[in-house]
Amino acid sequence: MNKTKLFLMLPLIGMLSCGKAKTEDKGAESKANAISVTIKGSDTVLPLAQKEAEDLMKADANVSVTVVGGGTGVGLTALIDGTTDIAMASRDMKTEEKLKFSEMKKEIEEVIIAYDALTVIVNPANKVGKLTREQLEKIFTGQITNWKEVGGEDAKIVAYSRESSSGTYEFFKDEVMGKKNYASNILSLPATGAIVQAVGQTKGAIGYIGLAYETKEVKQLSVSYDQGKTFIEPSVASAKDKSYPISRPLFYMFDKTNAAKVKTIVDFALSPEGQKIVSEVGYVPLK
């Protein structure tokens, strides 16, 4: 009987605590000079925006920020409809979207808040130091299976990928593999840390990670996007000056007429503090 009572109590306690939190929220919103901003869009930018919003709200009690994911397309649609103040984007606007904004007579400001770059990594014992995009595509689609085909030792290639739920998985597929599917014998691991660990201890391994994760246990490869004429070494510098090909800018986009309202958030993202969060979350800062 006692147990039954306990079970009945649990949801009750839950409900009570929820109610309490909500009233607090309302209190914050009703403050006189409070700003409440909604940010919506890319799931790649989401962890960064979330962390920045948390820090900003801790520092300034008058600012209330709501961050919602859903994808770049969702964010831009919301910006067109006016249901969000800032759209997060991991790509440039498409022509179609630009047209929609001009139709609505809205001028959109794009601010690059960080870069996202991927490095291809191998075991430090591997002799291969550079690969072309075509070779990478063939390795990950299973057409090249031995390191000697790309100038290395006679050893089997063990390719590691992220899980299909990861944005990195899609980015690598679109950017490097020409939208072809991964071979089904590619090993997939749930986290970047696990990929570094696995590549570090497996001789014939190859994998890809965010540029910011580089460690000494693995070797980074230079890649070429012009059939082997020039190979670019991955580094924060080459990602910033856009010479490194496997990288993309991350944007905050907002309506110019709305600029005053979102200024606090955009300024914070570009501030040294905000840029520090960029490196913490695993992206490439602007400076």
Binding site: V158, L187, Q201, T202, A205
Partner: peptide, 14 residues
């Protein structure tokens, strides 16, 4: 994983 890889001399331990 590394133990299995070296014991059975496999290209991959996972």
């Amino acid at each position: 994983v590394p133990l299995i890889q070296s014991t059975f001399d496999l290209p991959v331990g996972e």
